[in-house]
Amino acid sequence: MSQQPAPAAEIQAAVDKLRAALDDAETLSPPPWAITSERVVRAANQDIVADRSAEDPGDDIDLPYIALMHPGLGSALLLWLDSLTGIEFDERAPMLEELRHALAIARQILGSQP
């Protein structure tokens, strides 16, 4: 039976994974991201981030969400998670709500389950 990594280690691993992905995204698709009339999300350099122009009408409902999740938001999330990486905490003990949320986000980034 494998043991779940320590919460602090999970948050650090998520920070590392997010930082690598963010570095790539900022290089290729700098913020801000905006939706064009062609049902496309474009980065500040006009590169296409998401394209729903060939899809059925109505299949573009995720474009506002995709545009919102640009590297600027990822950077803010990274800074917040990184600020918590030095905190050691025990999942079995009462913990601050902020740490529970950080751990939940880290697990989403890592694709792991508690």
Rank of each mutant, 00 (worst) to 15 (best):
L103M: 03
D47R: 14
R107D: 03
T36K: 05
G72A: 10
A21C: 01
S2V: 03
D51K: 08
F89M: 02
R42T: 08
A102I: 09
L68G: 11
P30Q: 07
I61G: 09
S75N: 15
T85K: 09
L103D: 01
A34P: 00
I87E: 10
L99K: 09
A93L: 14
D56M: 11
E10R: 15
I48P: 08
H70N: 15
A6S: 12
L77Q: 13
P64F: 06
L68K: 13
A76C: 06
T85F: 03
Q108G: 13
R100M: 07
S53A: 09
E26C: 05
G86H: 09
D59N: 13
E88R: 11
G58L: 10
S29H: 14
A25L: 07
D82Y: 04
G72C: 01
A8D: 13
M69T: 06
I66H: 05
E97D: 10
I61W: 14
E91T: 04
D24Y: 11
V49L: 03
L68I: 00
A106M: 03
G58P: 01
P57C: 07
S83P: 08
D23V: 13
S112D: 03
I11E: 00
G111N: 08
P71A: 02
G86N: 13
L84A: 04
E91N: 07
A14L: 04
R39W: 02
L77I: 11
S29D: 10
D60M: 08
D90T: 05
D60C: 06
A54S: 15
S53I: 07
V40C: 04
L28K: 11
A106G: 02
E26S: 14
N45H: 03
R52Y: 10
A25M: 09
Q113V: 10
S29G: 00
Q4D: 03
T36V: 03
D56K: 14
D60P: 04
P71V: 03
W80R: 12
S29Y: 13
P30V: 09
E26Y: 04
A6M: 08
L81P: 01
A50Q: 12
A6T: 10
P94V: 02
G74H: 07
A54P: 00
D24N: 10
D24W: 12
P114D: 14
Q4L: 10
D24K: 15
G74K: 06
S37T: 13
Q108E: 11
K17R: 15
S75E: 13
L22T: 08
L79K: 15
Q46P: 00
E88V: 08
L63Y: 06
A9I: 06
I48M: 08
E88A: 14
L103H: 11
D16H: 07
F89N: 01
W33Y: 06
L18W: 04
L110K: 04
P71E: 07
I109G: 01
A9F: 01
D47H: 11
P7D: 03
L22Q: 10
P31Q: 05
Q113N: 12
L96K: 10
A20G: 02
L99W: 02
L73D: 02
L78N: 08
D56F: 08
M1G: 12
M69I: 00
D56Y: 08
E10S: 14
P57R: 09
D90L: 05
R42G: 00
G111S: 07
